[in-house]
Nucleic acid binder design. Structure first.
Lengths: 122, 122
DNA sequence: TTGACATATTCCTGTATGGGAATATAATCC
DNA sequence: GGATTATATTCCCATACAGGAATATGTCAA
């Protein structure tokens, strides 16, 4: 099985940077496609395709007005992501506390403590 | 260009449900790979591959102890996702307020207001 | 050394991309 | 109707998966 479809859920849809840009742009007010194209400086077909994905997972809503399609971010659909990531909040707080402790306990050693356990290609 | 690599950033790495499960499991304490295999009921090679991805984007740390590799979620690496999704918080709050207003203003109409503007295949 | 255990890597394959180019659909205006 | 504007879809292609199976690497113990 390949990677899950981008339309399978908000997590996958949001993995694409351009789609995140679009969501940020559309959150303050609805906009016609051409505004997105002009502002984000992307090819129009590309924008339409991204909007399709966002629409399918419910991250944007649309409204037609004449020839124009006004898209708008459906912020509520982002909430589950915020909540899932939020379940880790207390842990990064703990980590920060620990890091702080160690930093205060000893002055200036360990400037590069995180060497990767992965093998380096020689 | 195909989809961005899963190792390109935390957003892509986290798009995979199994990887989210692993992160949740590893956040309370470090665990050897076998614990993940047993608890999440996944094939061992699959777990190793997912851990590789998570390690490359910094979502987990490792420590070797004899033959075992102890992995642990690096919660701090999830923080950027929480913050990005958090930029939408005020907007879903607004949406909720608007929805609430409408709900209170009129009793019980509009039970299915969100018909999709996409064409249905006949 | 040999064997057992723990984990990682490789090879294969079907599938879903995202970008570019071209084209199609839809609505408006003359 | 025909032309124009706005948006969507289709086709092609290179690429990166995730899963399964098999195998490799690494570490300890006898």
């Amino acid at each position: 099985m390949p990677r899950a479809s981008t339309t399978s859920d908000a997590f996958n849809a949001v993995a694409e940077p351009r789609r995140r840009d679009i969501l940020s742009f559309l959150v303050t007010q609805e906009r016609p496609v051409n505004d997105i194209v002009a502002t984000l400086n992307l090819p129009q077909p590309s924008v339409s395709k991204h909007l399709r994905v966002l629409l399918e997972v419910g991250l944007v809503d649309v409204r037609r007005e004449g020839r124009q399609m006004f898209y708008r971010t459906n912020a509520a659909a982002i909430r589950p992501l915020h909540e899932w990531t939020g379940t880790f909040e207390r842990y990064w707080a703990h980590q920060l506390a620990r890091v702080k402790e160690r930093a205060e306990a000893s002055e200036k050693p360990n400037r590069f403590p995180n060497s990767s356990p992965l093998k380096e290609k020689p």
